[in-house]
Amino acid sequence: MNILSWFTDPANWTGSGGIPAQIGYHLFYSAVALLAAMVIAVPLGILIGYTGRGEALVAGSANALRALPSLGLLVLLFLLISPIVSGKLVYVLPTIIVLVLLAVPPILTGTYAGIQTADPDAVGAARGMGFTKRQILLRVQLPCALPLMVSGVRSSTLQIVSTATIAAYLGLQGLGRFILDGRAQASFSEMAGGAILVAILALVLEFTFAWLGRVIVSPGLRRTVSKSSSPISTTVLEPATT
């Protein structure tokens, strides 16, 4: 097995171009893009879900964004930015922007859909107890929206991690290096190794988010929770099935 020997070759595991270093770069670009996307998408999603305005506009533009080819966008941004900024930023900035554009729609949709589908009974009960609108948003609607928000972040993360490989096309580091360099040297085991590493990384992150979702989501919102453990919270706060 050539791929196996590529993985077990110690030379591939050390140095600045080694597997751990490239995974580090890959995770770094992905994390920056994910954070930026969340900073943009979560407040916007809350605003849309809360006011109920601009939903059609956002859904439409989110669909249009999906049709945009990431690679073309990357090169276009690079050509647009290159006369303005200098240094390494000229490569990093287009990559991050492309990844953010990719990651915003799922988080945005998850956030506003989560807030809109928050159980009306729970919202009504909170209002009856004298909650202000702000309290309802922060203490009822947002916790109810958390499962959908987390799943939005999850699908964004998967897309970011797999698409971050194209950073290598501009000459940046990351796991895409193995794929493109392997292609250039006709070393198919290196290409396959890079692809496998990306898949493993995506799976690990997926499991991490699944675990995170279980930890931060209120127990009353879990659909699998047994009715006998806390009958009141499950019946009141169970989100409407979408």
Binding site: R66, L71, G72, L79, I166, I179
Partner: peptide
């Protein structure tokens, strides 16, 4: 929708389709 845009990635491996226009644009600026 997103399938069409992902296909363009194949240009990185030298498979000719619409994505080849991207690599061409990058190489020639």
């Amino acid at each position: 929708m997103s399938n069409v845009s992902i296909v363009t990635m194949a240009a990185l491996l030298g498979i000719p389709q619409l994505g080849s226009l991207f690599t061409q644009g990058f190489q020639l600026r």
